[in-house]
Amino acid sequence: MEESVGRLQAEALRRKDRLKALRGKQLQNKTDGEPENKKVLEDEEEIKHRELKLRNYVPQDEVLQQRQMPQAKPASVEEKVKDQLEAAKLAPVIEEVDLANLAPRKPDWDLKRDVAKKLEKLEKRTQRAIAELIRERLQGQADSLAAAVESAKQEEDDSD
C-alpha cells in the first residue's frame, strides 16, 4: 500500500514537471514566435490610441487646435417624443369577447400538434392499404364469377 502511494506521488511530480515545461514553451512561443509585421501593427495601434481628441477644451496652441473636435449638434428630440406619444395612445377596447380565446386549451393540444404530421403519413398508408384490399376482393370476385360462368357452361354442355 505504501509503495503505491509513493509511486502515485512520483507520477504526480512528473506530471507537474511536464506541465511547467509546456507552459514555458507556450510563453516562449508567444513572445518569440510573433511575426515582425504583427509587432509593427501593435506599435501603430498604440500610437493611434495615444492621439488626443479635444472635445470640451479650446486650446490656444495652433498645433492643438487641429486636434479639436467639431461641436456636436444635439439630436432632434421632437420626433422621438411624437413617436412615443403615438405608441402610448390606448388601443380601442374590444367590444366583443371571443369565448374561444378565453377558454383554456386542452391539456393535450401540444401532443396533437406534434403528432399531426405522423398521422398524415399513416392516413395515406391506410388509404393505400384499403384500396389494395378492394382490388384484391374485386379480382377474387372476378375469378369466382369467371369460374361460375365456366361451371354454368359445363353444366349446359353436360345437359345437352
Score class of each variant (00 low, 15 high):
Asn101Lys: 11
Arg125Asp: 11
Asp43Ser: 12
Lys117Arg: 14
Gln66Ala: 09
Glu3Gln: 09
Glu11Tyr: 09
Arg14Ile: 06
Ala116Gly: 04
Ala10Ser: 06
Leu119Gln: 14
Gln68Asp: 04
Lys39Ser: 07
Leu13Glu: 02
Arg105Gln: 05
Ala146Tyr: 12
Ala87Thr: 10
Glu51Lys: 15
Ser4Cys: 05
Asp98Thr: 02
Gly140Thr: 00
Arg113Trp: 07
Leu54Val: 05
Glu46Arg: 15
Glu156Phe: 14
Lys39Asp: 09
Gly24Cys: 07
Gly24Met: 08
Gln9Ala: 08
Arg15Lys: 08
Met1Ala: 09
Leu19Asn: 01
Glu132Gly: 03
Ile134Gly: 04
Val77Arg: 08
Leu19Ile: 15
Pro92Lys: 00
Asp17Pro: 03
Glu95Gly: 10
Glu95Asp: 09
Ala103Phe: 06
Lys16Trp: 07
Val97Asn: 04
Ala100Ser: 01
Lys30Ile: 13
Glu136Gln: 09
Asp157Trp: 14
Glu79Thr: 15
Lys39Tyr: 02
Lys112Asn: 06
Glu136Val: 13
Val40Gly: 03
Glu11Gly: 00
Asp114Asn: 09
Gln68Thr: 14
Val115Trp: 09
Glu45Pro: 00
Pro107Gln: 03
Lys112Ser: 05
Val97Pro: 01
Gln139Thr: 07
Ala100Phe: 05
Val97Cys: 05
Lys124Met: 11
Leu64Arg: 06
Lys25Glu: 12
Arg14Gln: 04
Pro74His: 09
Gln68Pro: 03
Lys153Trp: 00
Asn37Lys: 13
Glu11Leu: 13
Leu138Ala: 12
Lys80Tyr: 10
Ala75Cys: 00
Leu22Cys: 07
Ala116Arg: 02
Lys30Asp: 11
Leu122Phe: 13
Gln28Phe: 07
Glu42Arg: 15
Val81Arg: 06
Arg15Phe: 11
Lys30Pro: 02
Gln26Val: 15
Ala72Leu: 09
Lys117Ala: 14
Ile94Met: 07
Asp98Val: 02
Ala88Arg: 01
Arg18Met: 00
Ala142Met: 13
Gln26Asn: 06
Leu13Ile: 04
Val149Thr: 15
Leu41Ser: 10
Lys73Gly: 06
Glu156Cys: 01
Glu132Pro: 01
Arg50Asn: 11
Val5Trp: 04
Ser4Ala: 13
Met69Cys: 09
Val77Ser: 03
Asn37Glu: 14
Asn56Arg: 05
Gln71Ala: 13
Pro104Ser: 00
Gly140Gln: 01
Val40Trp: 09
Ala152Tyr: 15
Trp109Ala: 02
Leu138Val: 07
Ser76Cys: 02
